[in-house]
Design a protein around this nucleic acid. Structure first.
Lengths: 108, 108
DNA sequence: ATTTTATATAACCGAACAGTTATGTAAAAA
DNA sequence: TTTTTACATAACTGTTCGGTTATATAAAAT
């Protein structure tokens, strides 16, 4: 099961995910958006891949990355539940709202 | 500002916080609840202290730890907002619900 | 056919982490 | 006063992480 803390625990990875939320991106595009070397970015992408939060596909010489919102949702479930329990019932009911399936599956 | 990812990113620390949610605990009590050495537990407590998620107080030879729910709430705010933005509007409205101040301040 | 482009991979670095053992210290109990 | 108890601290280990440079490779463009 994906480790959301690991995946989201780094600011660069969060920015990458925000980029991918706007649409699929080439590795090159991602690299150009940061002041980090290509292998450095690739490591972040590998961690997101390991955690299943993003997917990779090939197109000629390009690597295309996309975000897996459904998996991210499932993955954050446990975390939201835990925080909800700590922060008490208000957040829990809030979490229940999420769990009731009110999400639309953007990734289809 | 507290790094929630760091604080909550470890299972032992999450268990410690769950314990403290039930009430203040002595370091001894916490140590006894885990199969980890006393210095090992102390390191986790120090990280939670660094992030401001828990507080420490002295009582004779005892160290008493308590959870700072208010700070945890403020700290998770950003994280919840970010995840909300990724997981789209349903979660955002959910997050707004939290932000509207619907939390009661258990720690007063 | 050669060069450029997009990416992969290896090797390295310093810092942080999770854990340990060993030892010191201060409060409480005997 | 001696011993026990609760905790602090230092030093060490192995692993992961975020970053780098250097180099290889495969596709595309020239």
């Amino acid at each position: 099961m994906p480790n959301v803390y690991r995946a989201l625990g780094d600011a660069t990875r969060r920015q990458i995910l925000s980029m991918l939320k706007q649409g699929c991106k080439t590795q090159k595009e991602i690299v150009e958006a940061f002041d980090i070397s290509q292998p450095g970015i690739k490591k972040h992408l590998n961690i997101l891949l390991e955690e299943g939060i993003i997917s990779e596909s090939l197109n000629g010489k390009y690597r295309i990355y996309s975000i897996n919102l459904n998996i991210l949702q499932i993955a954050s479930h446990e975390m939201l539940q835990y925080i909800g329990e700590l922060l008490d019932d208000q957040l829990v009911s809030l979490k229940n709202y999420v769990e009731k399936g009110e999400f639309r599956d953007e990734e289809e």
